[in-house]
Amino acid sequence: MVTKQTTSPLLAIRGLITHFQVKETIVKAVDDVSLDIYPQEVLALVGETGCGKSVLALSILRLLPKNSQIEGSIRFNGVEILEASEEELRKLRGKEIGMIPQSQATSLNPLLKVGWQVREVLQLHKTLGKFEAREKVVKLFTRLQLPDPAKKMNYYPHQLSGGMRQRVLVSMGVACQPKLILVDEPTKGLDAVLRKEVVTMLGEEAAENRSSMLLITHDFSVAAVLADRIAVMYAGEIVEMGSAAEILEKPGHPYTQSLLDSLPGRGFKPIRGFSPSLSSLPAGCRFQPRCRDACPDCSALHPKIALTGANHYVRCFLC
């Protein structure tokens, strides 16, 4: 899955496998994933809950629990992350690769003032003094339109509303102007007004810092606004990848089509059945039990991902 672009990718993932050993069973959270993210590009990773999206992001930062096994290759800016020492990783995390975690309600330390929490990143990586770091935080808060930024530094997370906490998390993620920002479900559970604000804010931050972004979401309308390319993930695998316009207008994989059809504006047609457990995957194509176009071949063989158009990859026999 190498896209023909003139520059070399910032992040290149090849054959990434992240499995978890839970008692006797093996949970295949990420199974043979390859993808590239180019400088200043936004790649949206779209899929349902439990398909392995967040584990993929955590694999990039090597923030996985002890019962995980990880194979393959993740090269970031020429550095092989899977072979990096803990020391090297610490220099990457937060500085080169920023992360904006999923839940604004639980991702901040409730016992520390928010200004301190953002400052910590800066003092650690940028070796700024306390005073300089404080000024930088005020600047960040101002840019993210947090009202009364100097005062907000001394607030505890519970004193802020959901939207403000989201802004604090974004400011932590982008504080060191990382080359790559991993954003996990930035709009989950937010109301329409806040969702639009967060989406606008993320777009502006990525442009301001000239960062690339891996945007994890289940919401195609968020992906449509922000993403250059979209990768669709199902049961640990990437089933389709291509430019955002291509995926939205001419989806190739039946899963992508069904996912789009379940959007409110597209008729709300539900996909039958449930997504499979990652510890007992169906034989053949993983989407086959729920697929409306499945044929006998689909349950016998596992399809490989193949090129179907200009930089458009689909994992399906029917395309």
């Binding site: 329409a192 007004v193 969702r195 639009k196 989406v199 195609f220 309308s221 968020v222 449509a224 606004v225 316009a245 939205l248 207008e249 789009l260 959007l263 409110p264 504006g265 597209r266 008729g267 709300f268």
Partner: peptide, 20 residues
């Protein structure tokens, strides 16, 4: 409020399909 609906490319939307 209605202005905050995220715009999807109109070519892919089929509006006015009620939930069935």
């Amino acid at each position: 409020l209605t202005s905050t609906i995220l715009e999807m490319p109109t070519s892919i939307m089929r509006n006015d399909v009620a939930c069935q």
